[in-house]
Structure formats: C-alpha cells, structure tokens
Design a protein around this nucleic acid. Structure first.
Lengths: 340, 340
DNA sequence: TAAATTTCCGAAAACGTTACCGAAAATTAC
DNA sequence: GTAATTTTCGGTAACGTTTTCGGAAATTTA
C-alpha cells in the first residue's frame, strides 16, 4: 500500500491541494459536493493525513504528554488509565513516558514530549525537584503544564494534590482512638513531598492527643515491601516492637506484616497496621488492611480538566486543587471485632 | 524565551542554513572551527532542533512505539520499564500507549504511533486479534513491528513469547507429584492465547500421569482477584473444593485463597495453590505462593533487539523467540515442610 | 441586464528541517 | 605557478500540510 499525500488526491481530481486540504478541515469554504467527492476518493485511495506535516504547519498535535515517576505500583497506572480515558473523549491522545524515579530521565522525557509538540504536559515529578526551573520556564513561555501529586502546595503552578496531611492525621488518630499505646510511623523518603506531608499529619495527631513522646517514633523507609521487612528485622533485633504501625503505603505495610508474622506476631492482635494509598491487595490481605484510599480517577480527571482549560485559554489562572479521600477501616487495625 | 530556528543561527553567523544543519549532523563535510562556532552560538541562544521538521524531512524519529493491553498488573509495567531501559541506551525514546484490553483502542494507538513516525512498534496484543490484518499490512509495507506475548506461535511475524505450555505443564506436574488427588485449573479467558496454552500444559500433565478425568477440572475465570473469589464461592456452594488449584495468575490465586480462608480452609493444609506470571506479592503472601516466574526483562530486551535488527536491516528475517522461566516452589503447594 | 454580493477555489508562502548539486576555497602535486 | 584534488560551503528543492490573498464564477439584488 503506497503512502498517498494530499497532492496525489489533488492531481487525481484535478483540483488544487488547498481544496483538498479544505475538504479535511471544516473551517474553510468549500462546496458540499467537492468536499464529498474529495473525502470519498481519499477514503478509496486509503489516504491518511500526515500528522507530522500537520503539526509542523499548525503547531498543535491533539496529543497530551504524561510523565510519571513509575508505574510499577498501581497508583500511577490508574492515573494514566484515567487520564487516557478522559482525554480520549475530548479528542486527545495520550503519550506516556516514565522516568523511573530519575530526575534526568524525567527532564529528557518532558523535553521529548514538548519538542514532539504535545499540546500540554501532565507531570508527576520524581523525588527532588531539580527540574522545577525548567518547567517554570516553559510555563512562562506559555506552555501548558499541570502537576500531579508529589509537589509542594506552595509552588506557583497548576496542580492537583491529595490532602496527605489531613488523611494521615485521620489514620493516626484512628489508631490512637483504638487505644494503641505505642505507635510507629514507617515513612517514605524524607525529600518526597507526600511522605513529608504524611509525617506532618502523624505528628499533628500525636500532638493533639498529647501522646507521650517516648511512645511514638518516625522511621524512614522507602516505598517497597522489602524496606518494610528490613525495618521490622531491625526492630525485632532491638526488641522494639510497638503495638501499631502507620505505614506510608500498602506495600511497606505488607512487607512489615509478613516479617512480623514470620516471627510469631499476630496481626492485629499483637500489632495493628494502617496503610496508605490503598491498592487492590489491601482487602485481599490477611488480615485485610486498613488504608487511606485516594480518588485516583478524579485526581487524574481534574488534572486533565485543568490542562485543557489552560490549552484553550492561555490566560486561565493558576489553580491548586486539593483532593480528599476516604479511610477504609479493616481488620488490621481494630482491637476487637465489635468495633467493626 | 523565543523559539529559535536554524535560520536564526544562520543569519546571525552569516552562513547558510545548510551549514548550520551540517553542524548538527555529523555525516556531512564541515570545517571543524565553523562547526564548533555554530554549536557554541546555538547553545548560547538556547536553540533546540525541531524534531517535527526533522521527522518530516528525514522520515525517522528515533522513537519507538509500545502498545500494551494494560499496565495495572505489574507484568506489562515491568516490560515497559525494561524496554525503555534498553532502548534508551541505543539512542531511542519510548512512547507508550495502553489499550485497556480494547481492540479498537489498540488499533487507534498503533495508528497514532505509526503516523507519528515512530521507527518501529512493539505490540502486546489485547485479547482477540481482529487487528492482525492491519499489522500484517503494515509489515508488508516494510514497517518494523515485533509482537510480545499473547500471540499464537503460528502467526508469521516476529515475536517473543513465553513457553506457557511447558511451564504450565511443570507447575501441574509438581502438584501431581506432591500427591494432590483432585486438582482444578482456574484458567483465564478462553480466547486469550496465553490462557489457552496454559490450559494445554495442564491437560498434558494430566494425560501424562493418567490422572482420572473426574479428578481434574478446568474452570474459566478472568485475570482478576475478584474472579478468583467468585469461583470459590460457587465451588463452596456446590461442595466441590479440590485439594489443589493451579491458577492462571497470582491475582486469581490471591482472590481464591482469601475466599477459602474466610470459609475456614487452610492453605496449603486443606487446599494447595500454584500461581503463574509471578508478581512481587507471591512471596509476600501468607503462605508464600508458588508461581512460575517469567523472564520479563529478557523478554523485553529480546523484543527490542529483534525490532532494532528489523529497523536497521529491512530484510532481517522473521523470528520467533520462545522464552523459558523458572518455577519457584513456596509453601502454598507443598504437603509438608520436609519437602521444602 | 448590470451591479453588487457571495461562494468557491487556485497560487503560493510558510512551518523547520535535510540532502543533493555544484561551485568556491583550500590544499596538494607537479 | 598552474593544474588537479580535496574540503568546505551556499542555493535550493524537497518533506506534507495549512492558510492568506486575491480573483473567477456563481448567485443575488436592484
């Protein structure tokens, strides 16, 4: 199948290329019949407009670029799926790149997408923010970028974030109210904004309830099950097991629980657990894991809406949207079944 | 920051655009000093070549398109990450689209990528294969496409697949050898090639060991934990619980195990389990789940290599690569600890 | 029936590159 | 010092579209 161009159609029908172009773009004047004829023969010839040429002359692509740090955990997978689902309805296609939690790769990805003329960019930044200046320069150039998650509320850009502080506070308070006397927080990375905010929520709850300082602790881990396991090994070695853990995410909780079980601890009888950023496995675990659920779909949709607004109106204001979730209490964090 | 073009640089330095172009493309003749000067001033001006224009005139993009059915399960996430990791080293960037197990969306994605002039395409097809003709036409046009997984070995295209039959056979045989007398296979979708092949492996093992027909069964499920749970509910209702399950993947096993536990069954004491396409949670489950591990990284790498070979040499032959994995036996499928 | 409009279309420049062709400049050979 | 080479470079036509401008043809109006 040869690749036809607008010229081939023009020649075949003895019209000019501009007329053929007009047939494909509603905004120009063209007689109904010629348009129909052109579209019909184009269809027959199997002509497909070349989007590269289109982009070069129009400077828009109806493509949206998305950069996420990873999609090995289901959170960003869901985000991407939701973004795509929404944007396709609006006539856009979504190009995804993942930066593998690597700032340099993230920058490369963003540059690739921008220079491929995506009409806008949705970025979930990796840990650290060395690239922020680049993004802000692009935004100053008039380029539409919306951020998602992992970004401090104070940065003056359009963004959609989760109210980590508030829900971390709720989760912690739940453990306190259940009567647990010694509560440790397994936090993520110190320089990851979501971790930091969750730590703040944890502390806030502790302060509100005048929890004795010696009875709570914040232990930095990563975001992986393995790291949850390692922490527990240390704690067991030091005979320092509390009666409840609040974890930065479900995977860390999963790892920690496994290690505790292996060492003869019962969950939740001996040690209670709460996770965060609920994943599908939370309710499949034994015992099912209490966790804070984020409105993934809605967060993605909001981000996409913000972006489209900016694409359509260069002067749309900068907006920060803070989302709320829900706290699903399951067996892993209740003292007795009656409370359920 | 204004957007500069090659012309701006040419004007500023009083050289021709062709010279500037030459400075950026090693293959032409240009004096060392002029080249250095051009690159230097380009750098200073903040000039970035426009890849769209480049693509239009060169008809190559150094981009590779990837279409996967989903990446909510970690298998395809890992595939994408591995592809990217490998291809970036080779100077390519990877554009990912996911088709959400939808054939129409898959076709759209492929078309978008191709018309955006990715130099080649790696496709993990969705269930069903209505699009196969489209792909084969493109391949006939000389377009490099490599398939990954979920495609029948007989289709005459370049592809990398896993030896589902063989490893499904091993997994089943393991259960038989452990002495389980009644073994059910929770298969995926009937028209999903990987499911089909796993069913064949299951049957082959049964036949080899002359397993009594009334003592094994193949039950079609989906690929989700929820579906594993539903199946168990039915079986419990019918008082038809075998002493071992071989599941199409880990998630189905996870769901099934949860439901059984809720109903007072112990794993593996009352019912044993084996999963497939090992995920991170396999060894984190209680009990840890026996599962067949696929060489995800290598499969991705092989696919990328095949593709690059085709990109570089139009006449590279069609190849089918069948990969093998490993079977990790864990507590979920052993009769007594001594065997471990 | 002429004038005024409106409708339709073609020519050509533009988008930012690459790549071919030939010519000028520099180098080498004699 | 000239001829023969070799380097280096400029002009320009592509690549496949969109879009502006102007004008011819068709239609309406007077």
């Amino acid at each position: 199948m040869k690749h036809y161009t607008i010229k081939d159609i023009a020649k075949k029908l003895n019209v000019s290329v501009s007329t053929v172009s007009r047939a494909f773009n509603d905004k120009y004047d063209i007689k109904k019949e010629t348009k129909a004829l052109i579209l019909k023969t184009a269809e027959e010839m199997g002509y497909m407009p070349n989007p590269i040429a289109k982009k070069l002359s129009q400077k828009r692509s109806l493509n949206i670029g998305v950069v996420v740090p990873e999609f090995i955990n289901e959170y960003y997978s869901e985000i991407v799926i939701a973004l795509q689902e929404f944007l396709i309805l609006k006539g856009y296609q979504v190009l995804v790149m993942q930066s593998d939690e690597n700032e340099d790769l993230e920058l490369m990805n963003a540059q690739t997408l921008i220079s491929n003329m995506v009409d806008g960019l949705i970025v979930a930044p990796t840990t650290g923010n060395r690239n922020m200046k680049y993004y802000q320069d692009r935004i100053k150039d008039g380029y539409p970028i919306v951020f998602l998650n992992r970004i401090e509320e104070s940065v003056p850009v359009s963004k959609v974030v989760f109210n980590n502080l508030k829900w971390s506070f709720f989760a912690t308070e739940h453990l306190i109210r259940q009567g647990y006397k010694k509560i440790y927080h397994l936090s993520g990375y110190k320089d990851l904004s979501v971790s930091y905010e969750r730590v703040q929520g944890f502390k806030k709850a502790m302060n509100k309830h005048n929890f004795p300082k010696e009875n709570y602790k914040i232990i930095e881990t990563g975001l992986l099950a393995k790291e949850g396991m390692e922490v527990i090994e240390d704690l067991i070695f030091n005979h320092d097991i509390p009666d409840a853990f609040f974890c930065v995410n479900d995977m860390v909780a999963l790892g920690a629980i496994k290690k505790l079980k292996e060492n003869g601890y019962a969950v939740p009888k001996d040690v209670a657990f709460v996770g965060f950023t609920e994943t599908r496995i939370a309710e499949l675990m034994s015992p099912p894991l209490s966790s804070v659920k984020q409105p993934t779909y809605d967060m993605a949709k909001k981000a996409a809406e913000l972006l489209l607004k900016r694409i359509e109106d260069e002067n749309a204001p900068i907006e920060t949207i803070v989302m709320n979730g829900e706290f699903n209490i399951r067996q892993s964090s209740v003292k007795n079944k009656a409370v359920l």
